[in-house]
Design a protein around this nucleic acid. Structure first.
Lengths: 121, 121
DNA sequence: AGCACGTTCACGTGGCGTGAGGGTCC
DNA sequence: AGGACCCTCACGCCACGTGAACGTGC
């Protein structure tokens, strides 16, 4: 995803329907980290905007305060990481079983007795 | 763990260092669910008290509001469940590999050629 | 009868959103 | 020179904790 810094604060605020000052507060609390231009103007990327929308949902819709938002975002990150880890582990384990199958099939061919042919499926 | 309802509200509040009224508020928001006696008196179990301590850490130490506490508790539950699931999956997959090994070892014994003994470790 | 329980209402504080004031950069 | 940016300060509202008032159960 193209995620370059794009929107200055008034545009970003407009996009998510928030007060520009609110965005500055969020940054001061470390909830979003927009880039800055050489002239120190904030520039929000698309993922910054997405994060703002997420924060908005947590505050206005669910009523969390900013401390809660911070904690929830961290936990959701951790949850997402764990989910990926779970998927990866499932895949790796499946591959491990497959490797064992392949290895033994090779050995069976090597050691096969002519009088006891191995049934092929 | 023995988790019978034990402490009435003044005792539970004393145990965790909170105002009894605060405990009533928490219940009204569904954060804890103490049992009641026939006379409608709240009785808090040890796990209720533990939960109160957890809530206390989130509110006083981290500064969450109650909406945040509710959300965080839910996420931590989910995280714990996922962790158990991960452990279980790891074990099951390990057993699956082991099953494949055992199965092929049996077949190798059956089909083994006298002139090509299978090396044992 | 007394004490701790129950509920409901009122008050104070603090967090957070909103706006204004004043300076700086294009 | 104007407009949007920067930051800081002040106001208002609402959530939450605390306490009081009043009724009920042991």
């Amino acid at each position: 995803m193209d995620d370059r810094p794009r929107y200055m604060i008034s545009v970003a605020a407009e996009l998510v329907g928030m007060h520009p000052q609110t965005l500055r507060i969020y940054e001061s609390k470390g909830l979003v980290r927009p880039r800055r231009t050489a002239g120190n103007t904030r520039l929000y990327s698309d993922s910054d905007v997405a994060r703002l929308r997420l924060i908005q949902r947590l505050t206005t819709e669910l009523g969390l305060n900013l401390a809660g938002v911070e904690r929830v975002l961290a936990l959701e990150d951790e949850l997402a990481r764990m989910h990926r880890r779970l998927d990866r582990m499932e895949r790796e384990m499946r591959e491990a079983v497959e490797r064992v199958h392949r290895q033994y099939r090779r050995e069976l061919v090597l050691y096969e007795s002519p009088r006891h042919p191995i049934p092929r499926k």
